[in-house]
Nucleic acid binder design. Structure first.
Lengths: 237, 237
DNA sequence: ATTTTTTGGTTCGATGGCGAACAATAATTT
DNA sequence: AAATTATTGTTCGCCATCGAACCAAAAAAT
């Protein structure tokens, strides 16, 4: 039974906890590795466990009649399952699964629910995180309603980049297309544009971010506000 | 100083309160009329008051650089300002304003914040409402990403219809276009299609809902889940 | 009653993304 | 090494929506 030290943790929420709150959760955190496309939370199923990503990240999607569309991204800044648990429901019509494999810290839902009831500081922190998720969702609405594919793609690459170590994203055009709700060929073309302008560099199953600033010039205000709220309410990187 | 009776209230959240919680809030509720396009909460400004719509409803929008896009709708099922207040922030990058004029019950933010701290049942109810807002936002993402204008319009009309008395919506094509993030001419054409199929009937500044079922056939799963969550977690109409 | 403003109807070319193929290349399996 | 599969590149016609006008009708203002 290895002791997990707060200082050695990647997850920004766990790092932002008071040491009291951390001590409360620490005995219940279990390290696990995640597999690509592994389901963490299934739509309509009772939530038994929540997951603090340490490396890699998850997608929250809504499964419409036609397609699965991504409505949120949870990496080391977050907690998978936070919203349903803290907002008082045991299940949700959304689904969460691993989008980039890595490691997670798993915690039992009941334990976390009680901890959040007992500790105001823990509850406040997690609710603030949920606020940043709502802002993120608002901007996703804006992006889909107002922006062209190339801009939405730039936004998505930036959000992805924030959640990995290094500059290389491992994912296929096919998958990107699914998340953004467009066809795969369109993603290929948009990526080629971005690559031509020196913003990224693509290889098979890999996209390397070369120039964040140039990507930021494309996003038309759809990136940044949620991240600013996170910094303001929860804390620095 | 007129006493407001819980039984005579339209707002579904207030009706769903325990009588203890209602008694706690009741002395602080002030009836006011709302004007079309009146700002209730401004982006980036401290939130001083919250509003329970009784008649009419408000829009939550996010103001990107180019356009204002609607990200939420708050009528008598909700509370304007609930999310920022309960999630622990005094301001938010979103803006809320009256979309259909009517009456509101206003309450001081500090009073409500303290009441929510002291009463678990009140806090739980409001957090559950926020959950339904998040589901609504998820489906809005889905609608913008996956559906054509006619379907999104049908969805919006249904959500609107849920929040008014009677079958007549008072709003202009111009305004609808702004909320949906499309051009006005497109709205006119889509409304003509809906009208031709006997689903609605349009007059100047007025849209009458004739056949909800036929509208439901168009929405492709983008309407219903949030309303179901509301019914499940908060209660019937 | 006349003028002005607001709202809705209509049309035009331009274009972004769809839908559907099929080819080319890299990775994986046998 | 050969065969198979997964991934990416490319193209073509099509359609929804854009962007931009302009007009008609209704309401509001004078």
């Amino acid at each position: 039974m290895s002791q997990i030290q707060q200082a050695s943790i990647q997850n920004r929420l766990l790092r932002a906890l008071t040491s009291d709150d951390f001590s409360r959760l620490q005995p219940h955190l279990e390290t696990m590795t995640s597999q690509l496309r592994e389901d963490l939370i299934e739509a309509g199923e009772p939530i038994k466990e929540l997951y603090f990503p340490e490396v890699g990240f998850a997608s929250i999607v809504i499964d419409g009649l036609a397609q699965k569309i991504e409505v949120g991204l949870v990496g080391r800044e977050g907690l998978v399952g936070a919203a349903p648990l803290l907002l008082g429901t045991d299940c949700t019509p959304q689904q969460s699964f691993i989008q980039m494999a890595g490691t997670l810290l798993r915690i039992d839902a009941g334990v976390l629910r009680i901890a959040a009831q007992e500790s105001t500081s823990l509850r406040t922190l997690l609710l603030r995180y949920i606020h940043t998720q709502m802002i993120q969702a608002s901007l996703t609405i804006y992006a889909h309603a107002a922006l062209k594919l190339e801009s939405r793609l730039a936004r998505w690459l930036l959000m992805c980049h924030d959640r990995v170590d290094g500059d290389e994203l491992v994912l296929t055009h096919e998958f990107l297309a699914m998340m953004l709700g467009v066809q795969r060929a369109g993603v290929t073309l948009a990526l080629q544009n971005l690559e031509g302008a020196g913003r990224i560099q693509g290889r098979r199953k890999r996209i390397r971010i070369l120039d964040r600033d140039k990507l930021l010039q494309l996003v038309n205000g759809s990136y940044g506000a949620a991240e600013a709220e996170y910094a303001r309410l929860i804390g620095g990187a």
